[in-house]
Amino acid sequence: KRPMNAFMVWAQAARRKLADQYPHLHNAELSKTLGKLWRLLSESEKRPFVEEAERLRVQHKKDHPDYK
């Protein structure tokens, strides 16, 4: 399984919050909304998630050196 990218790291927590706020939204609508919200974030707001995704990528490479 591939490591999560920055969006997926962020969306993991954001999806729970959004689903709690809008329990009537279908998963497809949640995903579209999350995409729009992510694009509205500034680079500095995204930075911690980009850094975490990079950490996960490096760890994955270490754990699975033959993964392509």
Results as ranks from 00 to 15, higher is better:
residue 1 K to W: 03
residue 1 K to M: 03
residue 2 R to M: 01
residue 2 R to D: 06
residue 2 R to I: 00
residue 2 R to A: 03
residue 3 P to N: 04
residue 3 P to I: 04
residue 3 P to A: 06
residue 5 N to W: 02
residue 5 N to H: 09
residue 5 N to L: 01
residue 5 N to M: 00
residue 5 N to Q: 01
residue 7 F to C: 02
residue 7 F to L: 14
residue 7 F to K: 00
residue 7 F to M: 12
residue 8 M to N: 04
residue 8 M to P: 00
residue 9 V to A: 15
residue 9 V to Q: 14
residue 9 V to P: 00
residue 9 V to D: 07
residue 9 V to N: 13
residue 9 V to R: 14
residue 9 V to C: 14
residue 10 W to V: 00
residue 10 W to S: 00
residue 10 W to Q: 00
residue 11 A to G: 04
residue 11 A to N: 00
residue 11 A to W: 07
residue 11 A to T: 06
residue 12 Q to M: 05
residue 12 Q to K: 12
residue 12 Q to E: 07
residue 13 A to V: 09
residue 13 A to S: 15
residue 13 A to L: 05
residue 14 A to K: 08
residue 14 A to W: 07
residue 14 A to S: 06
residue 14 A to F: 06
residue 15 R to T: 00
residue 15 R to Q: 03
residue 15 R to I: 02
residue 15 R to P: 00
residue 16 R to M: 09
residue 16 R to A: 10
residue 16 R to V: 08
residue 16 R to F: 00
residue 16 R to N: 05
residue 17 K to C: 13
residue 17 K to N: 11
residue 18 L to G: 00
residue 19 A to I: 07
residue 19 A to K: 13
residue 20 D to N: 05
residue 20 D to R: 08
residue 20 D to E: 14
residue 21 Q to I: 12
residue 21 Q to M: 08
residue 21 Q to N: 05
residue 21 Q to W: 13
residue 22 Y to P: 03
residue 22 Y to Q: 10
residue 22 Y to F: 13
residue 23 P to N: 14
residue 23 P to S: 15
residue 23 P to M: 13
residue 23 P to Y: 13
residue 23 P to F: 09
residue 24 H to E: 07
residue 24 H to G: 09
residue 24 H to R: 14
residue 24 H to Q: 13
residue 24 H to K: 15
residue 24 H to M: 06
residue 25 L to Q: 00
residue 25 L to V: 03
residue 26 H to S: 15
residue 26 H to C: 09
residue 26 H to R: 13
residue 27 N to S: 12
residue 27 N to H: 12
residue 27 N to D: 12
residue 27 N to K: 14
residue 27 N to F: 14
residue 27 N to V: 13
residue 27 N to M: 13
residue 28 A to L: 12
residue 28 A to P: 06
residue 28 A to C: 13
residue 28 A to F: 15
residue 28 A to G: 09
residue 28 A to V: 11
residue 29 E to T: 13
residue 29 E to P: 14
residue 29 E to L: 15
residue 29 E to R: 14
residue 29 E to M: 14
residue 30 L to P: 04
residue 30 L to Y: 04
residue 31 S to A: 02
residue 31 S to G: 08
residue 31 S to Y: 01
residue 31 S to E: 14
residue 31 S to W: 12
residue 33 T to I: 12
residue 33 T to K: 15
residue 33 T to Q: 12
residue 33 T to P: 02
residue 34 L to V: 09
residue 34 L to T: 00
residue 34 L to C: 02
residue 35 G to Y: 02
residue 35 G to V: 05
residue 36 K to P: 00
residue 36 K to S: 04
residue 36 K to V: 02
residue 36 K to R: 07
residue 36 K to C: 01
residue 37 L to P: 00
residue 38 W to L: 06
residue 38 W to N: 00
residue 38 W to I: 00
residue 38 W to T: 06
residue 39 R to H: 06
residue 39 R to Y: 00
residue 39 R to T: 07
residue 39 R to W: 02
residue 39 R to D: 05
residue 39 R to N: 12
residue 39 R to M: 07
residue 39 R to K: 13
residue 40 L to P: 00
residue 41 L to S: 07
residue 41 L to T: 03
residue 41 L to K: 12
residue 41 L to P: 01
residue 41 L to M: 15
residue 41 L to A: 02
residue 42 S to T: 10
residue 42 S to Q: 06
residue 42 S to N: 05
residue 42 S to A: 03
residue 43 E to G: 14
residue 43 E to M: 13
residue 43 E to W: 14
residue 44 S to K: 03
residue 44 S to H: 07
residue 44 S to A: 09
residue 44 S to I: 05
residue 45 E to T: 14
residue 45 E to C: 14
residue 45 E to H: 04
residue 45 E to R: 11
residue 45 E to Y: 06
residue 46 K to M: 02
residue 46 K to A: 03
residue 46 K to V: 09
residue 46 K to P: 06
residue 47 R to C: 02
residue 47 R to Q: 06
residue 47 R to L: 05
residue 47 R to E: 09
residue 47 R to Y: 00
residue 48 P to E: 06
residue 48 P to L: 02
residue 48 P to H: 12
residue 49 F to Y: 10
residue 49 F to A: 13
residue 49 F to R: 14
residue 49 F to M: 09
residue 49 F to G: 14
residue 49 F to N: 14
residue 49 F to D: 15
residue 49 F to H: 13
residue 50 V to N: 09
residue 50 V to G: 11
residue 50 V to E: 09
residue 50 V to R: 11
residue 51 E to C: 02
residue 51 E to L: 02
residue 51 E to Q: 07
residue 51 E to T: 02
residue 52 E to M: 00
residue 53 A to K: 10
residue 53 A to C: 03
residue 53 A to H: 03
residue 54 E to H: 02
residue 54 E to S: 09
residue 54 E to I: 05
residue 55 R to N: 07
residue 55 R to P: 12
residue 56 L to W: 01
residue 56 L to G: 13
residue 56 L to Y: 12
residue 57 R to V: 07
residue 57 R to N: 11
residue 57 R to C: 08
residue 57 R to F: 04
residue 57 R to D: 13
residue 57 R to Y: 04
residue 58 V to T: 11
residue 58 V to P: 09
residue 58 V to M: 09
residue 58 V to Y: 03
residue 59 Q to Y: 03
residue 59 Q to N: 07
residue 59 Q to S: 08
residue 60 H to S: 12
residue 60 H to N: 13
residue 60 H to M: 07
residue 60 H to F: 09
residue 60 H to T: 10
residue 60 H to Q: 13
residue 60 H to G: 10
residue 61 K to C: 05
residue 61 K to E: 04
residue 62 K to F: 03
residue 62 K to L: 08
residue 62 K to E: 08
residue 62 K to V: 05
residue 62 K to A: 12
residue 62 K to G: 12
residue 62 K to N: 09
residue 63 D to K: 07
residue 63 D to A: 06
residue 63 D to I: 01
residue 64 H to W: 06
residue 64 H to M: 11
residue 64 H to G: 10
residue 64 H to Y: 06
residue 65 P to A: 10
residue 65 P to S: 09
residue 65 P to I: 04
residue 66 D to P: 11
residue 67 Y to G: 14
residue 67 Y to H: 12
residue 67 Y to R: 12
residue 67 Y to W: 09
residue 68 K to H: 12
residue 68 K to S: 15
residue 68 K to V: 06
